[in-house]
């Protein structure tokens, strides 16, 4: 199969993820969409790795996964804390940074 198709898939996934981040209010969903974008990038990296015939892309994909895992831990913790204190997981409710 033509590897370029994987790139199309990655772009599609990224777009879906981005749309989700922008449109959804539930923090958990937004979070999952961010993960989706990260994985789309991973897919692209691996594809490029294949296309160029070296391992750089795959190594970076692993890095991304580690970072994403760490991020999930912290992100979920934050979301849970916010939910506890405000009884809502909506991102729009957490606007305390506004002046």
């Amino acid at each position: 199969m033509n590897p370029v198709n994987y790139l199309y898939l990655a772009a599609l996934l990224f777009t879906i993820g981005a749309t989700g981040v922008l449109l959804r209010r539930n923090a958990i969903v937004v979070f999952m969409c961010v993960e989706l974008m990260l994985n789309a990038c991973n897919l692209a990296f691996v594809t490029f790795s294949r296309l160029h015939g070296n391992l750089d892309g795959q190594i970076i994909a692993f890095f991304t996964m580690v970072v994403a895992a760490a991020e999930v831990v912290i992100g979920l913790a934050i979301i849970v804390t916010i939910f506890r204190s405000r009884h809502s997981a909506s991102v729009d409710d957490a606007n305390l940074l506004k002046l």
Binding site: D92, N95, L99
Partner: peptide, 17 residues
């Protein structure tokens, strides 16, 4: 300028994108 900083994470995301 301050009005741009409305505290909505999603609007920040839009500007990032």
């Amino acid at each position: 300028m301050r009005r741009l900083q409305n505290g909505y994470a999603r609007s920040y995301a839009v500007s990032m994108f």
